[in-house]
C-alpha cells in the first residue's frame, strides 16, 4: 500500500512535493461468508499479460474522466486466507470528491473487466465465482461504473 501511495503522490526525492489535497485508499479483503457459505480461503487466478492491459485501459479511462486524479492499483493472485488483502486501489487528486470517485471507479472496473477469477473454498466444497462477462469495449458497463463512482 505504501508503494501505491508513493506512486500516486508522484513525489521525487529532492523535488518539492506535488501536494495532492486528497488520497483515497481501498483494500478489498477476503470475507468469511459468501451467499450463506462459510468461506475458508480464496484462490485467485489471473491471465497476467491481459490483466496488465486491462489495468492500462482502466487507467486511461480514469485520465479521461478525472484529469486531475492519479491512480495506482494492484491485485494479488494465489491462495489468500480470511481477512487478507486481495486488491488495493489508491487515488490522489487535489480535492476529495475526485479521489473518492476515481478510487471507486477503478475497483468497479477491475471487477468488470480484469481477467481475474476467484475460486472459493468453503466448508463442504469449492466453487468458481463467476461475475461479469469481460468486455473492455462495452460502454454501458463503463457508464455503470461511472454512475456508481459518482453516487
Amino acid at each position: 500500500m505504501a508503494e501505491l501511495i508513493r506512486l500516486v503522490s508522484g513525489d521525487e526525492p529532492g523535488e518539492p512535493p506535488a501536494g495532492h489535497g486528497a488520497i483515497v485508499t481501498f483494500i478489498g479483503t477476503v470475507r468469511g461468508e459468501n451467499q450463506g457459505r462459510k468461506v475458508v480461503r480464496l484462490e485467485y487466478e489471473a491471465y497476467e499479460p491481459l490483466a496488465l492491459r486491462a489495468f492500462g485501459v482502466i487507467a486511461d479511462e480514469v485520465r479521461n474522466r478525472w484529469p486531475s486524479a492519479r491512480v495506482a492499483f494492484h491485485h494479488r493472485t494465489g491462495s489468500l486466507a480470511l481477512g487478507e488483502a486481495s486488491v488495493m486501489v489508491v487515488a490522489a487528486s487535489p480535492h476529495r470528491a475526485e479521489a473518492f470517485s476515481a478510487c471507486r471507479y477503478v475497483i468497479e472496473r477491475v471487477k468488470q473487466i480484469a481477467p481475474v477469477w476467484k475460486r472459493e473454498f468453503f466448508e463442504g466444497g469449492d466453487v468458481w465465482i463467476e461475475g461479469a462477462a469481460a468486455d473492455a469495449s462495452d460502454e454501458a458497463s463503463s457508464e455503470e461504473a461511472y454512475r456508481r463512482a459518482c453516487e
Binding site: Y44, S86, K111, A114, V116, W117, E130
Partner: peptide, 10 residues
C-alpha cells in the same frame, strides 16, 4: 487464443 469465463476479481 484465450477463453475467459465471466471474471470475478476483487
Amino acid at each position: 487464443v484465450a477463453f475467459l469465463p465471466p471474471v470475478s476479481g476483487g
